[in-house]
Structures are given as C-alpha cells and as structure tokens.
Computed example of a mutant assay.
Amino acid sequence: MDALPNTLLPSKEQIALLPAFQNLNLDKIIVIQNLAECKAIETALKQATLLGFDSESKPTFSKGEIQTGPHLIQLATVTNAYLFQMNAETWRFLTPLLANPQQLKAGFGLKNDAHLFRKKGIELNGVIELSKCFSSFGIKHTMGVKNAIALLFQQHFPKSKKISTSNWAAKNLSRAQIEYAAADAYACVLIFNELSRLNLLPEHVLKQIAQ
C-alpha cells in the first residue's frame, strides 16, 4: 500500500491559501440540450466505465413550493464533462445509463439525488458515495468535495453559494454555472481515481466494483 497522505485535514483558512483546483478547459465541457446532441456523445459516454456524477436543481424558496428537479445532470470522465439540461428527450437517453449497475457513477451527497430520481421513476444503480470513502484516513465524519480535494491534491476547490443557488432550469446557463457544474462532476472522477491509486477505496466499494 502506498504511503498515506497527511491525514490531518487543513483548516478552512489553510484551504483558502492552497493553489486553485484545475478544472477542465471550457472546450472540454459539453452542454447538451436535445437528442441530437445526446447521440453525438453516445459512444464516448457508453465506453466510460466510471463517471463523475452530480445533479443540480432550481432552488425552491417558497413554503410549499414543489421541487421539480433535477434540471441539470452532470457526468464527467477524466477528459470531458457532459452537462445535460433535462427534458423528455434527455431523460429517455440517460435513463438506461443511470440504471446500469455496471457503469459506476461516483459522487458526493447522492442520497438526495437518489430521492429526486426516484420521484421521476428512475432507480440509480452503480452509485458510489465518495463522502464515505475516507475511513482509511481516520476520518469518521462525512467528507465533502472541498475537503477531499484539499486532502488528496492540496488544492482549493471553490464553492460559490451564489452559483449553487442560481437558476439551474435556465435555458441558457452562464459560463460560471457551466464551469461550476462541470467541476463538481470532474472532481469526483479525480478523487475516485486517486483513492484507487493509493489502494484506499473501502471494502464495500471494492466489492461493488467486483460485482
């Protein structure tokens, strides 16, 4: 087994001083709005055995307002991020992939995602919850992407509340939204691969991969 990285998590102040997370270039982030655009990346997507996974929903602010998301689904490989703006066509295209237990989807905080997908009649399979993959570091609490990137790569992963609570159902996403959404999924691929390289994936994940 490789040597463990520093198991002491840096403080918020220390993290803020770290070099910035290296996101994908904008030309490697593909925004998908219709079936034709889905078909254009279908082969590349089907060939991926591991995908970084996340979803975004337009926030609800009023009491009793019903959540209709997810409105954006992010999938990423080590080279590209695919941002699906959800409609009937993109739902039909993604449903087999989301339900496929052989295609791994790694992400953080996926319990709420699974709940929203279930409301759409979709059961997520092949999902790896990264927040629970850090017991080898002596970390008992649930980890988030920001701390995970700081721990594994000594980089600062910015999380903007303004962007996270923006309108993800908008027809035209801003550049800030696009880069934010892509980073969330791309980081998950890097984190999974680094834990695998260090032989630190927990036993329950290794069993899941072997199935």
Rank of each mutant, 00 (worst) to 15 (best):
N80D: 14
S136K: 10
A187T: 01
P5C: 05
S196Y: 06
Q67W: 00
A76K: 02
Q177V: 11
Q155M: 15
V127H: 00
Q154E: 09
T79L: 12
L130T: 04
L116N: 08
Q85F: 05
E37A: 13
W168H: 07
F61Q: 03
V145C: 08
I30C: 10
N80H: 15
Q155P: 05
V205H: 02
Q211W: 09
D27G: 00
S62G: 00
V31C: 15
M1F: 12
Q33I: 09
L9D: 07
E129Q: 06
G64Y: 08
Q67N: 15
S166N: 05
C188A: 15
G121S: 08
L173P: 09
L72R: 01
I149T: 14
E123A: 14
L4V: 12
P70Y: 01
Y186N: 04
Q67G: 11
F53W: 02
V31G: 05
Q14V: 01
A176C: 05
G126M: 04
I149F: 06
G126W: 06
F21G: 01
G121T: 03
L24S: 07
M1W: 10
A16V: 01
F108S: 02
D113C: 00
N87V: 11
D54I: 10
V205W: 03
L151N: 04
F157G: 07
E89L: 07
P59E: 05
M86F: 01
P158I: 15
D54M: 08
G126F: 00
F93I: 10
K161C: 04
K120H: 14
F93S: 10
S11T: 15
L51W: 00
S136G: 11
P158G: 14
A114Y: 04
S196R: 13
D184R: 00
L75N: 00
S11C: 05
V31A: 12
A170D: 13
S57W: 10
L94P: 03
I122Q: 09
N25A: 13
C38Q: 08
S164M: 11
I32D: 09
T95M: 13
A48E: 08
S196E: 14
S160N: 07
V78C: 10
A81Q: 02
K140M: 10
N199A: 13
N147P: 00
W168T: 04
S55T: 13
T90N: 11
T95R: 15
D54W: 09
A3Q: 13
I41V: 15
N125C: 13
D2N: 13
K171I: 13
E37T: 06
Q102R: 12
P101D: 08
P59K: 05
Q47V: 03
T90Q: 04
T49A: 03
S131R: 14
G52T: 00
E65R: 09
I29C: 06
F108R: 02
